[in-house]
Amino acid sequence: MGDAKWIWALRDGLTMSKRSLMHIFRDVESLLMAIALPVSIMLLFVYVFGGAIQTGTDYVNYVVPGVIITCAGFGSSLISVSVTKDMSGGLFERFRSMPLQPSSLLVGHVVGGYLRNMIATLAVFIVALLIGFRPEAGLLEWLGVLGILTLYMISINWLFVVLGLLTKNVETAGAFTFPMLFLPYLSSAFVPTNTMPAWLDAFSKHQPMTPLIEVLRGLLIGTPIDYNLWLTILWFSGLLVLSYIAATLLFRRRKNE
């Protein structure tokens, strides 16, 4: 019986992921936005600001990881909107009256968001290569990039599921995009942190985005990684576990105030 429960939970997760994918590919506007935004941000940084920023390498090489995580953050934050929509309509009400695992129902949003982010990331890599991005990564490093990006995206996707569950209306949920777009700017994503005022430098060095970016940059263009790898894994697996637990608890409690 215990086994059967797990299999059903997995199957339900798949059903819900399929639903999210259908949503993503039927909502062409959002999909195009999710792809166009990162590409434009990258072009903006490389061609407009890039000339003025000294990083010791070609700026396009420096900036690609930052662009990817900024836009993955933006893409993930859209999950809050769809979760809030689901919760405010009748659909999740019915789901909650069925004998289903909350995590199976929510995982669809996480998986869907992950695939949308991966499509956008692929687009960024392709355009970056066209405008002079020259990574030095071998197969192992690319797998590392995939692994780290997956951990990052899945963990913040769960975080945005939680925020979506906490929010009552779709407009508020939309506002969560703001901090996610903003946080990477206060890290080493676009400029080295030692160019910032001392207090900001201290903040930037100790927020999770900086180690994440350093790891990606190290894997892609060979800058030093050292302790940043463990720091990144610690930050984002911690976030993943906490968000996952919070999401499953909130799903049942929601509207029971």
Binding site: R19, M22, H23, G89, G90, L91, E93, R94, P99
Partner: peptide, 18 residues
């Protein structure tokens, strides 16, 4: 209880995009 019942709430529980 959830195995015995089905709920049709005040707001239609249907997926608009499907």
């Amino acid at each position: 209880v959830r195995r015995k019942i089905s709920l049709t709430g005040q707001y239609a529980a249907v997926d608009e995009l499907l």
